[in-house]
């Protein structure tokens, strides 16, 4: 059961991402990407990690995609003209994807495939997760945070105002 659901969710994720990279309108692309994140979150939940699933929705769908939308809207990247033809055909893929996502989550709730499995403690309990992150995986966490720090410094260097008299 878990395997079948996993592959279905994987297919939904791939299809949503495919729809995302083929959209001409960046806002539509973001909507498909959010659908993909939901599939990813469900996948984590299926594997018995509800905490990670929640973080996935909060951080990726709730914050990072919102910042994407902010940039898109701020720079006016979305095309002004709306393509002709009935709109529901353009949104049919999204409707299908969301419907199958709903069906998958209903199945997960009813079957609870993760119930009988051996699940590490830090998949479930926030306290154990924190302990695991800062003891067992401390090295990885530090590395990732350094990477983020470097990225921030790089962005700052790129975006700093040029000294006077210096050209591009």
């Amino acid at each position: 059961m878990t395997t079948v659901l996993f592959y279905i969710l994987g297919f939904i994720l791939l299809a949503a991402t495919l729809m995302c990279i083929t959209r001409r309108n960046p806002v539509h692309a973001v909507i498909y990407l959010v659908a993909g994140f939901f599939a990813l979150a469900l996948m984590f939940y299926l594997l018995g990690a509800p905490l990670v699933a929640a973080w996935e929705v909060i951080v990726y769908a709730g914050a990072i995609m919102v910042l994407f939308l902010f940039i898109i809207m701020m720079l006016g990247l979305a095309p002004q003209e709306v393509p002709e033809g009935p709109g529901w055909q353009r949104w049919l893929p999204l409707v299908l994807l969301s419907a199958s996502l709903m069906a998958c989550s209903l199945l997960i709730i009813l079957q609870d495939p993760a119930a009988g499995q051996e699940i590490p403690d830090f998949y479930l309990a926030p306290q154990a997760l924190g302990e695991a992150l800062f003891s067992r995986y401390a090295m990885a966490v530090e590395m990732v945070s350094f990477q983020l720090l470097f990225a921030t410094i790089g962005a700052f260097l790129l975006g700093r105002p040029l000294p006077k008299g210096e050209d591009q």
Binding site: L51, A54, W55
Partner: peptide, 24 residues
Amino acid sequence: LNIGLLYIFGLSSLAVYGVVLGGW
């Protein structure tokens, strides 16, 4: 839910989409 607080957070961050998409 044992992650009820995170659930509320997730929903409140998804509520932004209604505002943003409607406005856009």
